[in-house]
């Protein structure tokens, strides 16, 4: 973890951090479009369903059969459009729509189990898995970037609700909770 662990500490060795704005795009289309986007990022193909993959040009999260969330290194929508060319697709910027929260630490998965019905055990939700689900009453994208680290995206207007919800669950998480 690059930043100081003291920042945003919400449970023992577990921190919640709101990340700065960064470029991101929703790319939708059929297989050739998703494949072209994967190649642009330096991947052989688009990631498999519910998986994230990172190449030299950035990361793609395969959130649905016809949908990628692109997190490119550089903010160059014209470059992406050029790479996709005439392949039918939809590229829409959502850099300001979503806000990223990073939840990192040994209690991260257990905290998420208080907010989301997904099974966050590593065998069920391995590193590299990414999916949309719910964070209590908000929509959220969950991407496990390391055994104890999650990249979470929520829509901007839900950020305070999501952060407060995570903090509330973290309070008391160490008492008699089940291992995930």
């Amino acid at each position: 973890m690059a930043r100081s662990m003291a920042e945003g500490m919400i449970a023992p060795d577990t921190a919640l951090v709101r990340e700065r704005q960064s470029p991101r795009y929703v790319l939708q289309g059929r297989a050739p479009a998703l494949q072209a986007a994967g190649r642009l990022l330096g991947l052989d193909d688009a990631p498999a369903l519910l998986r994230a993959a990172t190449g030299a040009g950035g990361t793609a999260l395969r959130l649905g059969p016809f949908e990628l969330l692109l997190l490119p290194q550089a903010d160059d929508p014209a470059g992406i459009e050029a790479a996709l060319g005439a392949v039918p697709h939809s590229l829409v910027g959502v850099s300001d729509r979503n806000v990223t929260l990073t939840l990192e630490g040994p209690w991260a998965a257990r905290i998420l189990s208080g907010l989301c019905p997904l099974d966050f055990a590593e065998h069920a939700f391995p590193v590299g898995m990414a999916t949309r689900s719910v964070l209590e009453k908000a929509d959220a994208v969950f991407w496990r970037t390391a055994p104890h680290r999650f990249h979470i995206e929520v829509w901007r207007s839900f950020v305070a609700y999501a952060e407060n919800g995570i903090r509330e669950v973290a309070r008391g998480i160490t008492f008699a909770s089940l291992a995930i």
């Binding site: 929703v26 016809f66 829509w155």
Partner: peptide, 13 residues
């Protein structure tokens, strides 16, 4: 149809 939909409610203030 080759058309796709994206919510941009919160992208644009």
């Amino acid at each position: 149809l080759d058309v796709w939909l994206t919510s941009i409610t919160e992208e644009w203030g």
